[in-house]
Amino acid sequence: MKNTLDLSNAVWRKSSYSAGGDDNCIEVADGYPGVVPVRDSKVPGGPALLIPAGAWAAFVEEHRS
């Protein structure tokens, strides 16, 4: 999905499913209906992926510990 949202005011948080280190985390932003923006924490000014919310929920459920 192409990033067409304005994410300049997004509030990013490290995913609780990342390993927790500063060098290998993804960040997600909440509050975007229908999509979950995801970015690399090492490149905060870089691009974000917009993952359909249902696909993100299925991914998280599949990888729960």
Rank of each mutant, 00 (worst) to 15 (best):
P47L: 14
L5Y: 13
E61P: 08
K42M: 08
G54E: 00
V36H: 03
T4S: 15
G46Y: 00
D30I: 12
I26P: 04
S16Y: 10
G21S: 08
G20C: 09
D30N: 11
Y32R: 07
R13D: 07
D22H: 12
Y32D: 01
G21C: 04
L50V: 11
W56T: 03
P44K: 04
T4K: 14
S16W: 05
N24D: 09
V35F: 04
A29K: 02
D40Y: 04
A57N: 09
C25A: 02
G54F: 07
E27Y: 07
L7Y: 10
A10Y: 07
I26N: 08
S41Q: 08
V38Y: 06
L50K: 06
P33V: 00
A55I: 10
I51V: 11
A58R: 12
H63W: 12
D23N: 15
G34L: 01
P52Y: 11
S16D: 10
L50D: 03
G21E: 09
S8I: 03
K2S: 15
I51A: 02
H63G: 02
A48C: 06
F59R: 04
A57M: 02
V43H: 14
Y17D: 11
P44Y: 10
A53E: 10
D23K: 15
A55T: 13
R39C: 02
D6V: 05
A53H: 06
I26G: 10
P33K: 02
L5Q: 08
P52M: 10
V28K: 05
P44I: 05
V38L: 06
V28S: 03
P52F: 06
Y17A: 13
A19E: 12
P33E: 03
F59E: 04
D6Q: 12
P44M: 07
S18E: 04
S65H: 13
K42C: 03
E27A: 07
E27Q: 10
N3H: 13
V28W: 09
R13K: 11
S41Y: 02
A57I: 00
D30R: 15
A57Q: 03
N9M: 05
G54R: 02
D22G: 14
P52T: 10
S65T: 10
G34Q: 05
